[in-house]
Amino acid sequence: MQYYIQKLLGFFFFLTALLKQGFISCGSQRVYGIVHEKVTFSIASNVPLNEILWKKQKDKVAEWENSELRAFSPFTNRISLDPVSGDLTIFNLTSSDEDKYEMESPNITGTKTFSLYVLEHLPSPRPTCAFTNGSIEVLCKISEHYNSHPELIEYSWDCPMEQCKHNSTKIYFKLEDDIPQTIQCTASNPLVNKTSSIVLETCVPSRGHPRNRYMFIATLIGVIIVIICIMLYVLGILKCNRNTDRNNSS
């Protein structure tokens, strides 16, 4: 039994040594970039690389050979290659750049692959609310026209209530609860997060101080009635004075 354990340990140390010497695994790494910006595929090789070939699927992206760099369309004038580390940088990203990339070199064993996801600039969320069945329903969503990997977008809330601890697009508040005045919702993807806020009092127009509102309306109506009565009284006095002056003159 001890013999097999020693064999396994020896094999483990052998794999570790291979990795340290620049042997690269075949696992694919996710990389995210934003349209019109840049992204870097990091190799960080520990051995000198005399020749490097980067490919997008089966198409060549860049080639380093005899100390010269050659870029292929549509990446001409849009890439930078570090011949020491093997890192590749793509500038001015477009949605068509999204794909699987891999690097090959005779100085290393195997290939290093990357899955590139190109995202549009994330807009700020637009929180909306409605009052239904005695509760305030608050919805946090970005524009429905944003179609750049919506499956990567997550939503979160910021407020002292228990409801805000759950990541979801929709939360509820009961009127009898001590609800906060303002809450924030955040939309985020692997690269960016955007936050907006909403005032909950605007979700229930009838909420606040209805008794004061009714008293104000009643007071306003009373003032109008008093003004009308005064005007009628004044007009009546003027009429009486005119009649009195006519009687005196006769």
Score class of each variant (00 low, 15 high):
residue 209 H to V: 02
residue 209 H to A: 09
residue 209 H to N: 15
residue 210 P to R: 06
residue 210 P to A: 02
residue 211 R to V: 10
residue 211 R to L: 14
residue 211 R to I: 12
residue 211 R to S: 08
residue 211 R to P: 00
residue 212 N to K: 14
residue 213 R to M: 03
residue 214 Y to S: 10
residue 215 M to D: 01
residue 217 I to N: 01
residue 217 I to E: 04
residue 217 I to T: 04
residue 217 I to Y: 10
residue 217 I to V: 08
residue 218 A to Y: 04
residue 219 T to C: 10
residue 220 L to R: 02
residue 220 L to M: 05
residue 220 L to S: 09
residue 220 L to C: 05
residue 220 L to D: 03
residue 221 I to Y: 00
residue 221 I to W: 04
residue 221 I to N: 05
residue 222 G to H: 09
residue 223 V to H: 10
residue 224 I to R: 02
residue 225 I to L: 14
residue 226 V to N: 03
residue 226 V to Y: 10
residue 226 V to A: 12
residue 226 V to T: 13
residue 226 V to K: 06
residue 227 I to D: 03
residue 227 I to K: 05
residue 227 I to R: 00
residue 228 I to S: 05
residue 228 I to K: 05
residue 228 I to G: 03
residue 228 I to D: 01
residue 228 I to F: 09
residue 229 C to G: 05
residue 229 C to Q: 13
residue 229 C to V: 06
residue 230 I to D: 08
residue 230 I to S: 02
residue 230 I to V: 12
residue 230 I to Y: 03
residue 231 M to Q: 05
residue 232 L to A: 13
residue 232 L to H: 06
residue 233 Y to H: 13
residue 234 V to P: 00
residue 234 V to C: 06
residue 234 V to M: 02
residue 235 L to P: 00
residue 235 L to E: 10
residue 236 G to A: 15
residue 236 G to D: 12
residue 236 G to R: 14
residue 237 I to G: 01
residue 237 I to Y: 11
residue 238 L to R: 11
residue 239 K to T: 03
residue 239 K to I: 00
residue 239 K to L: 03
residue 240 C to V: 07
residue 240 C to L: 07
residue 240 C to F: 04
residue 240 C to A: 12
residue 241 N to L: 13
residue 241 N to Q: 14
residue 241 N to I: 15
residue 241 N to M: 13
residue 241 N to S: 06
residue 242 R to H: 08
residue 242 R to I: 10
residue 242 R to M: 03
residue 242 R to A: 12
residue 242 R to P: 00
residue 243 N to F: 04
residue 243 N to E: 14
residue 243 N to I: 12
residue 243 N to H: 04
